[in-house]
Amino acid sequence: MLDATLTPPRLPAAPGVGYKAQHFNALRDDPGPVKWIEVHAENYMGDGGRPHAQLRALRDQFSVSVHGVGLSIGGEQPLDQDHLTRLAHLLDWLEPASFSEHLAWSTHGAEFLDDLLPLPYTDATLARVAEHIDQVQTRLGRRLLLENPSSYLAFSQSTWSETDFLAELVRRTGCGLLLDVNNVFISATNLDYTPQGYVDAYPIDAVGEIHVGGHDHDHDDQGAPLLIDSHGRKTAEPVWDLLRHTLQRTGPAPVLVEWDNDVPEWPILQAEAERAALALQSATAGS
């Protein structure tokens, strides 16, 4: 188990944004309340060029969080050691304040399926995910923040609740957590539980970062609401409510606005960051 005190999270308790290359100039000239950015690790695993040059410029002005989407920590098969090596190289030269990944799988056999796929929560999957997190933290020499998934369905064989599963992973590995409250709202709606109840049962002391973002509306075969994690629009009002509820428990924390599809002009994303700043202020005032 990694000694978590060695590399405490250093992201500022302030708004951050998911970085998009088209915002490079606007973000640097007029960041508004944005104090940090998050990048998807896999987009910066080339050898150089504009992606690396932009990151080198941005890290002088902002704290950086590296967010992996390809490690397949929830996979049934062993971790991809080549990919771990690429990650280690990126973290080595970029020296980000934080590294996070997902409670999900995406690689099967030799195939990468480019989506965050769900896993059942059982004693067996718990042991395997804990082992994978241990390997990642040992290889990278730093604490990992693990993000809760957005769920569209459940596994009948699950014997653990997601919050207990995450709490036990924290206990066994010393990892931290990335609490995506948009994902909580989506999963709670889709699987019919209360999002506030999820947050109240969540191992809140392990939170090193919070995500908000937009989702789409659909319906399942029975006409029940089915929310889709699209990251393609503004964060919905009930998700802002859930963020404020969450911040009551965590106190000030790094809050990231995710917007990955139909990416808007900078002022619109900046306005979302302003809303996160307001939520953070009210949390500070209320605590």
């Binding site: 399926l113 480019d114 989506d115 796929l117 769900p118 059942p120 569209y152 369905l153 459940a154 596994f155 009948s156 064989q157 889709n190 699987l191 019919d192 659909d218 319906h219 399942d220 075969d221 029975q222 029940a224 089915l226 889709i228």
Partner: peptide, 21 residues
Amino acid sequence: GLVGADGQPTEKRFAVYRNNV
């Protein structure tokens, strides 16, 4: 073993993952 909130199997919910990929 993949079920919705009502514990019933669900074609459309699985289709979200199909569509995502």
